[in-house]
């Protein structure tokens, strides 16, 4: 009932297509990482979901309804879009109170979220005196006001100190454990891998991947090995003969694809090639993500050339 459903969603700004026939679903009970480079369309998709921007075509629904149709929306959906989106001359407490009251929530709920986000002692201060990290916490406090079943956070760890980053990570995991639908955007893969169960990856407004984090990691990590020898020419010949893809490096090094270090070691021993260094290289998550988004960029620019 509380999933997010995006169907064939498209948004043009002037001549620029920010979101391009996007279709995906976000399910409750897990943290879904919403990934993509800056400008991939993550924030636009969130704004479309919240009815702030109008889609050019397609639909964006929450629990089967458009956001604007929800009578007291903060009780269903909590969103952090832009931590600056609050009038700087208001106190944190008044800012939250104005939001709460409009959705039939009381002042006691404001105090609760101020405490929960660690802003209790500064609730009476004007927002202009807040650091980016404190504004980020205030935005999260606003998102939690209505105890919503769906939570959408756009780059929540921006500006947070390391302690804050751990706090937000734990918060998101807890929200998902409680059975809520949690969608969290980020442009940082390694950060996202620390909290997300599921991934939706965008590139240039299009869906590149929609799969469990584990599957993404496995599908994207390929074994490769790094080896250094005193006789690079002989090793190169051997690798070519055995059908490996390998690239020479400086100082007698080779980078060999789709192979484990022990295979190279055994092979070199058979041939009597002296090895001075040998190790497995793991594709990092960061690399996997960059590969994926780079492919999309290449694909997109190739497509444009054809036109």
């Amino acid at each position: 009932m509380t999933s997010i459903d995006v169907h064939e969603l498209t948004k043009d700004y002037g001549g620029t297509r920010a979101v391009d026939h996007l279709t995906f679903q976000v399910r409750p009970g897990r943290v879904t990482g919403f990934l993509g480079p800056n400008g991939a369309g993550k924030s636009t998709t969130m704004r479309l979901l919240l009815g702030l921007d109008r889609p050019t075509s397609g639909t964006a629904k929450i629990g089967g309804q458009s956001y604007a149709a929800l009578p007291e929306p903060l009780r269903h959906v909590g969103a952090l879009l832009d931590p600056q989106a609050a009038h700087a001359a208001r106190t944190a407490r008044d800012h939250l109170l104005a939001l709460a009251v409009s959705n039939g929530l009381g002042a006691s709920r404001v105090e609760e979220v101020l405490e929960e986000t660690g802003l209790g002692p500064v609730g009476g201060r004007r927002i202009r005196t807040f650091s980016l990290g404190m504004r980020q916490r205030l935005g999260i406090a606003a998102a939690l006001l209505g105890d919503p079943a769906v939570v959408m956070l756009d780059e929540p760890s921006n500006g947070l100190d390391p302690e804050g980053i751990i706090w937000i990570r734990e918060l998101m995991r807890r929200l998902a454990r409680e059975g809520r639908t949690v969608l969290v955007s980020s442009h940082l893969m390694n950060e996202t891998s620390s909290f997300a169960d599921h991934l939706i990856v965008l590139g240039q407004g299009r869906l590149l991947a929609d799969l469990p984090m584990r599957v993404f990691l496995e599908s994207r990590s390929q074994p490769r090995a790094r080896v250094r020898t005193t006789e690079p020419a002989r090793l190169g010949e051997l690798l070519a003969r055995e059908g490996y893809r390998a690239a020479p490096g400086e100082d007698g090094r080779w980078m060999v694809e789709d192979v484990r270090a022990e295979e190279i070691g055994a092979m070199a021993a058979r041939e009597g090639i002296p090895i001075v260094e040998l190790m497995d290289e793991h594709t990092t998550l960061e690399q996997a993500y960059l590969d994926l988004t780079a492919e999309a960029t290449e694909f997109a620019s190739a497509g444009r050339q054809e036109v």
Partner: peptide, 18 residues
């Protein structure tokens, strides 16, 4: 105009989307 400073309007409209 307080709604148009810092995009405060977005927060207001998420609370009252109509």
């Amino acid at each position: 105009s307080t709604e148009y400073a810092n995009g405060a309007l977005r927060m207001s409209l998420t609370a009252v989307p109509d």
